[in-house]
Simulated assay, not measured.
Amino acid sequence: MDASDYSELEGGLVRMLDRLKNEGTATKDPEADQFLRDNANAVLLGLLYDQRVLAETAFCGPLKLRQRLGHLDMRQIADMDRDAFEAVFVETPAVHRFTNKMVDTTQTVARAIADEYDGDASGLWREGTNAEVEKRVKKLPGFGPQKAAKLKYCLYYFGHRDLSD
């Protein structure tokens, strides 16, 4: 499967990728788009947040966190006091509408990335086939088969890796 061909997808990610191709911005926020291109952790968290909110809102979430925290360091996020992290997460506009679940899931994902990939989500996809990458991603909380399958499109369109078969 060619990672540039997302015709099998439906929903908000399709809308974002169509806008990226036609208008040059996926999220409608050039700064958020650039952050997604520059930061592997942002791509992973954006995809995590892409559930039951607009995709554009989801993929802007990591930039909101960086602006509020001054970083998107997975080790620091994992180590933060949960209540302090929640306070940052719920600042208006909230990072995600399902605050309790996403605060906990974000910190759990951050802990896994910190411990298993030295804080860098690109370690999930740096090596291996698409199937191997999907298998690794599905081990993370919040990443089922459908979401794991979307990763290759996000990686391709934000310039991190081409996982075409």
Score class of each variant (00 low, 15 high):
residue 1 M to H: 09
residue 49 Y to G: 01
residue 113 I to Q: 07
residue 30 P to Y: 11
residue 14 V to P: 00
residue 47 L to F: 04
residue 6 Y to R: 05
residue 157 Y to N: 00
residue 9 L to Q: 10
residue 31 E to M: 05
residue 78 A to N: 13
residue 163 L to Q: 03
residue 128 G to T: 11
residue 75 R to F: 06
residue 29 D to I: 03
residue 82 R to S: 06
residue 92 T to Y: 13
residue 158 F to R: 00
residue 129 T to C: 07
residue 123 G to F: 04
residue 110 A to P: 03
residue 36 L to Q: 10
residue 54 L to W: 01
residue 122 S to C: 08
residue 33 D to T: 12
residue 92 T to L: 11
residue 132 E to D: 13
residue 82 R to K: 12
residue 123 G to R: 09
residue 101 K to S: 15
residue 87 A to V: 04
residue 20 L to E: 00
residue 160 H to I: 02
residue 127 E to Q: 09
residue 39 N to T: 14
residue 42 A to E: 03
residue 56 E to C: 06
residue 47 L to V: 15
residue 39 N to L: 01
residue 49 Y to N: 14
residue 110 A to L: 12
residue 100 N to G: 09
residue 24 G to D: 07
residue 50 D to M: 05
residue 125 W to V: 03
residue 127 E to V: 05
residue 27 T to S: 10
residue 12 G to W: 00
residue 120 D to F: 10
residue 120 D to H: 14
residue 73 D to L: 07
residue 40 A to G: 09
residue 44 L to R: 12
residue 33 D to C: 07
residue 45 L to E: 07
residue 21 K to E: 14
residue 70 G to H: 11
residue 71 H to D: 10
residue 121 A to W: 05
residue 83 D to I: 07
residue 135 K to Y: 03
residue 104 D to N: 13
residue 13 L to P: 00
residue 52 R to N: 14
residue 157 Y to V: 01
residue 118 D to Y: 02
residue 90 V to T: 15
residue 10 E to A: 09
residue 145 P to H: 15
residue 58 A to H: 02
residue 40 A to L: 02
residue 140 L to K: 09
residue 158 F to E: 00
residue 41 N to I: 07
residue 60 C to H: 00
residue 103 V to S: 07
residue 132 E to Y: 06
residue 104 D to V: 11
residue 86 E to K: 15
residue 28 K to W: 08
residue 101 K to D: 15
residue 25 T to H: 09
residue 147 K to A: 04
residue 97 R to S: 09
residue 144 G to I: 05
residue 5 D to P: 05
residue 134 E to D: 14
residue 163 L to E: 01
residue 48 L to F: 14
residue 102 M to R: 15
residue 159 G to R: 12
residue 34 Q to Y: 04
residue 63 L to W: 12
residue 144 G to K: 10
residue 1 M to V: 15
residue 14 V to Q: 02
residue 52 R to K: 12
residue 28 K to T: 15
residue 53 V to Y: 08
residue 61 G to W: 01
residue 137 V to D: 01
residue 133 V to S: 08
residue 102 M to N: 13
residue 27 T to C: 06
residue 18 D to F: 00
residue 132 E to L: 06
residue 105 T to G: 10
residue 28 K to N: 14
residue 128 G to M: 13
residue 121 A to G: 10
residue 89 F to W: 11
residue 17 L to R: 01
residue 156 Y to G: 01
residue 78 A to M: 13
residue 4 S to M: 04
residue 25 T to Y: 13
residue 109 V to H: 12
residue 31 E to R: 12
residue 126 R to Q: 13
residue 132 E to G: 12
residue 98 F to Y: 15
residue 45 L to V: 03
residue 62 P to L: 08
residue 103 V to T: 11
residue 52 R to T: 05
residue 92 T to Q: 09
residue 49 Y to I: 04
residue 99 T to R: 09
residue 40 A to Y: 02
residue 79 D to G: 10
residue 90 V to L: 05
residue 16 M to H: 02
residue 158 F to S: 01
residue 25 T to G: 10
residue 160 H to N: 04
residue 156 Y to F: 14
residue 140 L to A: 06
residue 134 E to K: 15
residue 116 E to K: 13
residue 138 K to L: 05
residue 137 V to H: 04
residue 60 C to R: 14
residue 20 L to N: 00
residue 151 L to W: 03
residue 152 K to Q: 11
residue 159 G to F: 06
